[in-house]
Design a binder for these strands. Structure first.
Lengths: 64, 64
DNA sequence: AATGAATGTAATATATAAATTGCATATGTT
DNA sequence: AACATATGCAATTTATATATTACATTCATT
């Protein structure tokens, strides 16, 4: 599940730690999602998108 | 997790059974997702969207 | 060189998505 | 009325997302 989470988060200037805390998951979960070897739940995807000011499509739709 | 799956599927004229078979999940899983009391995985959301010729945002982003 | 912050990663435990089976109901068709 | 199709729903099982804990590595800073 490749996605644009990492590039978006870095551009925003926040750490995995900060993003995970704002969303309410662990840093490891964010790390695994960014790595792309993960199949997160829809709710989590929505939480990430809102925190990064993006939509689902921008982060997760037909990436690469 | 309210969404537009049911209305889109019905408009398309296919049954839960047909959609589930094309995607490779059970009819019950589709039923629960349509009901909105479910938190499906990203992969499954993508599969549904492609089968219904929609994007993630159209089916799952800020519905209602 | 030493320290701390950010990240990668791995093992195990827990929560929950999804499968499986089964039955009920509603609706249409013969 | 009998039958078939589509859907709702509930109980149990299985697979996997996520938490927890822990340690290693990289890089910037002092």
């Amino acid at each position: 599940m490749k996605n644009n989470v990492k590039i978006t988060r870095v551009k925003m200037g926040i750490t995995q730690q900060q993003l995970s805390q704002r969303i309410g998951v662990t840093r490891q979960t964010i790390g695994l999602i960014e790595k792309g070897e993960y199949n997160p739940s829809l709710q989590l995807c929505v939480s990430i998108a809102k925190e990064l000011n993006k939509t689902l499509d921008e982060l997760f739709w037909e990436v690469e």
